[in-house]
Design a protein around this nucleic acid. Sequence first.
DNA 1: CTCCAGGGATGAT
DNA 2: ATCATCCATGGA
Length: 310
Amino acid sequence: MKLVEISAPDFDLAMTLDSGQVFHWEKAGNGFVGTIGDCPVYIEQGGNALRAKVASASSRSRLHPGQDAHATITSYFALDHPLTDICASFPNDPIMNEARDFCRGLRIIRQPKWECLATFICSSMKQVAHIRQISLALRRRFGERRQIGNRFAYTFPPARRIARASENDLRECALGYRARNLLMTARLVSSGKADLKAWSALPDADLREKLCALPGVGMKVANCVMLFAYERRRAFPIDVWIERVLKQQYFPRRKKVTELRLREFAETYFGEHGGYAQQYLFHHARRARGSHQVVPAGTPRLAKLSAPVG
DNA sequence: CTCCAGGGATGAT
DNA sequence: ATCATCCATGGA
């Protein structure tokens, strides 16, 4: 297998793929197999270099001219993002500094819009591990199998394919009550009543309003789609993890902090790359040592003051 | 077994 | 405007 080599300083492939923004990449050998759009991809990292193979989108079509493997990888993994500047824009406080250090090399990738929207509609009240399972089930049932090296990857089914499935078909992919929402939104997108591409031109507030009008899309999912698929780096999704972090770290010993209050704080406090800050806080909360421990309500964790155990 | 998860929609205060 | 409840499913 011929691999294209791509320089990728300040990038951590494994951490980026594990950070809960994309759910279909699977370990394969020294790297990962997945899809970028309809192209099957193998990619591995060694130091500051990526080695990748990007096959054509289908067996009978070639890559779009000018969109070679290098450009595809660079765009998808956002290797052009000025990560140093972005991290420097984060607020200077103990938990943010800890997250920034822990998540060095984590980038917010550019996902296809429909794929991102559909996946996050399926994400509500689901653990990351199960979202991966749902994503795989949808791909295997409604997507198309592509070969990459000696392995296979499945494309994410287009909206028109989901739209002509039955709710029961979708439920068989372990979607539960989310099946109806995904089906209804797929129909809106497929029919053109919801034009995801055209919405790129809208300002943040209007884009958020359009997304929230879709079945199964509320403030949190809308912000995920804005951040991961529309390059809106201020979008700040607040899920149960981030809600805990915000309340414990920034509103210690306050009995009730309203959702609106949290959103207003997040918008103003984390700055122009708030979405990145949010992703770093999220990944740090989920993966850093000890961060999974349950902290009693009203007991703020004082970062770096507790003695390390062991 | 219980508890919880990258929530959203709906209806009652 | 805030609050309560329900919605399916499976990992931990």
